[in-house]
Design a protein around this nucleic acid. Sequence first.
DNA 1: TTTAATGTAACTGCTATAGTCACATATAGA
DNA 2: TCTATATGTGACTATAGCAGTTACATTAAA
Lengths: 140, 140
Amino acid sequence: MISSRFSVAVHILALIEVNEGNVTSEFMAGSVNTNSAVIRRIMGMLSRGGLISSRPGVVGIKLLKPTEEITFLDVYRAVELPETKDLFSVHQNTNIRCPIGQHIQSAMEPVLHDAQSQMEQVLAQATIKQLVAEIADKGD
Amino acid sequence: MISSRFSVAVHILALIEVNEGNVTSEFMAGSVNTNSAVIRRIMGMLSRGGLISSRPGVVGIKLLKPTEEITFLDVYRAVELPETKDLFSVHQNTNIRCPIGQHIQSAMEPVLHDAQSQMEQVLAQATIKQLVAEIADKGD
DNA sequence: TTTAATGTAACTGCTATAGTCACATATAGA
DNA sequence: TCTATATGTGACTATAGCAGTTACATTAAA
């Protein structure tokens, strides 16, 4: 199961957008309902992912791209899989003296890769801008 | 990350197919390179998922459907998400007095659902029969 | 009756997640 | 310059899931 870091990160970006960057980690923690250190930890991942910039001691967070260019996939990649890139884990060290054991990974690989790609494709179509608009509609 | 139970389960079904059911958990553990209890634990999930049937004390496992009808999605559903059905976890208990906190889950839900569906769609197109054929080709 | 396999339970070690506290560092503003 | 405040990060905790391991009751074939 993909961790809630992803949905929290999207939440953070939406808060930054609607408040035009004038938010603190403390304020966002109040909306997410968690600890401010959790927010700052995820902010760090978003920074390293090139999505936001912030500075110690300064209130105010900049989005480094317009919200119509920040996709859910960007966020997903920033906060999940910092090292690993695969959605599926495959058992290793199978017995190569068994035909199945020898070829199972390579035989499954294209399907698993394709499955992950299709999932990511959907995330790539959704943007923070759309999300914020959606939420604004609901608020009426 | 989706656990390796899934790929091990596919491995088990392939072994059952190519050996026409005449396999023991001990034998399969040798191919997967793990403990036989791990194999039996996953066999239990495949049984509860309606994919195989086996009996204590008896060598021999039956596939309950022809291999062209056993999809990767069937396997995935049998061994992952026994209760929960969602690929993405979303943080709960957000602050409903904040517009973002109030609507974030419902606004993200369609996208996450769609992403999961597209991934599952790919798994639904792959069958154990195809996998076994693929492995047979590689063996030549 | 003996032998062997399944189905599970119980326990371990490992890893990841999320919450919490603490604090050094950096900045803005009085 | 001094004070208040926010970030960035490290350390620690509790919790949960995964995978390996041992053990054993149950079951059935030979």
